[in-house]
Design a protein around this nucleic acid. Structure first.
Lengths: 254, 254
DNA sequence: CGCCGAGTTGAAGCCTTTCAACGCTGGTGG
DNA sequence: CCACCAGCGTTGAAAGGCTTCAACTCGGCG
């Protein structure tokens, strides 16, 4: 492994992993694959027996709406994220995964995850905690879409992306590449592309953000954070509830 | 245990549990507590070191919206559901849990879950799969609120409740007690109580549903299912990815 | 050089909200 | 036992945020 595995890096931030845990994840995520921006990794409804780990770049998952022909973008996946967890509960994918930027992802067969759960229970617990954190992040999106107006929804989305991209970018960043169309942003926030445009321009006029091509700069971050009282759900995850020193049950049994 | 533990019953539906697994869950959920309808189990932002299992009745979790003073109901919890999983990721509750009907819940300290993960890895995997299924159900709600109109949102909500209540009710049911105010329904679907009322009345006028007091009857279920193309996410959960015969690692180690 | 997708803008309309009022009902206290 | 109150359901009217429809610009690409 020349590059550090993104999942290892992420989990390690939450809880220091021992050598065995690290190695097991790395072995599980060996098979890498490139996905070009705009390309579809897998389609809603398709058979799927693997999970995917984002190693580089970002993607989004979306579903089609039968009645209107529209689309809802459910979430974005960044480096270190485990994608396709719905394939754990069923053998068919419940959403379509599309690359936002050029990506590298690694494939992990479901059975490999199963072994990981049995052999390294502390990892299982950590993954469960991460899933819990992501459920809360999803709740935040639900709240944003269900109970706030267009402007707040866009602000929440931008702040969320910024926070997530910062983790891998490292250092202080106040702008980022946004290779999404305004129609995409509408699909993510539950609004039309026309209204995305109007809301963006209004925010720009007020000096809250700046846009140059595909790049967005957050000018007045404190104001934006105040406006939507944003909470970053990915900063840390509690692991104190996991029994200590259970790093690798497997080594005793193998 | 006089009554069958609801969590055991639910997990057993997804994957037959062995005696040890069963007993461990039952021991973990011994401490029961009654919650009267309308009562709050715990509050958003409060310290919380326990999970709760719904044994009887149902509850909902909600969050306050700072900017508008409003509220978003995130989801409903039915018999067999594990509540408060956000406390796994942090030590503070991220939502408020309120009883919809009179309930019996049992408390499970986080540390107990930790031990469960280490001692019965197959259960850990199953819980992970259930969490994945619930994440998809949450995505469905997001899609419903983000991309469909008032009528479809209400229909989806009703069908979801019906499906979930049927599991415990047993047998064919086409009506159920709905002890929620129309304001509550609005908070769950992202609309105002006024519009909930108008939409309900319109549906009633069209013979899709009937209402008598707090009781709702689904008259034309096929039509409703077609209208929103509803999918029940709780029917089954895949467990084929879990290694077999790993029922209780603990027994070998204790 | 022309086409196409994406961004932009205006105008009109609609779904939903907001504001307000009134009836009903169940619970409370005199 | 009944008057009173508070919460909930209901309805009307007006306002508004967002959508829809349509047209026009701009930049990249064949």
């Amino acid at each position: 492994m020349s590059r550090t595995d993104a999942l290892v890096a992420r989990l390690n931030r939450y809880m220091p992993l021992d050598a065995e845990e690290r190695e097991r994840i790395e072995r599980a995520t060996e098979r890498e694959r490139r996905v070009a921006a705009g390309e579809v990794l897998f389609e809603e409804g398709g058979e799927n027996d693997s999970l995917y780990v984002v190693q580089q770049g970002w993607l989004h998952s979306s579903v089609r709406i039968a009645s209107t022909g529209g689309r809802q973008i459910l979430r974005f996946h960044y480096a270190g994220d485990l994608m396709g967890t719905s394939s754990i509960a069923w053998s068919r994918a419940s959403a379509t995964l599309t690359a936002v930027s050029d990506c590298i992802v690694s494939e992990m067969p479901k059975a490999t995850l199963g072994r990981l759960f049995v052999d390294t229970p502390r990892l299982a617990g950590l993954l469960y905690a991460v899933a819990a954190a992501e459920a809360v992040a999803m709740s935040d999106r639900l709240t944003s879409i269900g109970r706030t107006d267009a402007r707040e929804r866009l602000i929440t989305l931008l702040l969320d992306m910024l926070a997530r991209l910062r983790v891998t970018a490292g250092g202080v960043v106040d702008s980022f590449e946004l290779p999404l169309t305004q129609a995409d942003l509408g699909d993510a926030t539950g609004m039309t592309k026309v209204h995305v445009n109007r809301t963006f321009r209004a925010m720009e006029a007020e000096g809250l953000i700046e846009r140059k091509g595909k790049r967005v700069r957050i000018v007045d971050e404190p104001a934006l954070i105040r406006a939507v009282d944003f909470v970053d759900r990915y900063g840390e995850v509690a692991t104190d509830w996991l029994p200590r020193g259970q790093g690798a049950v497997a080594s005793a049994r193998l």
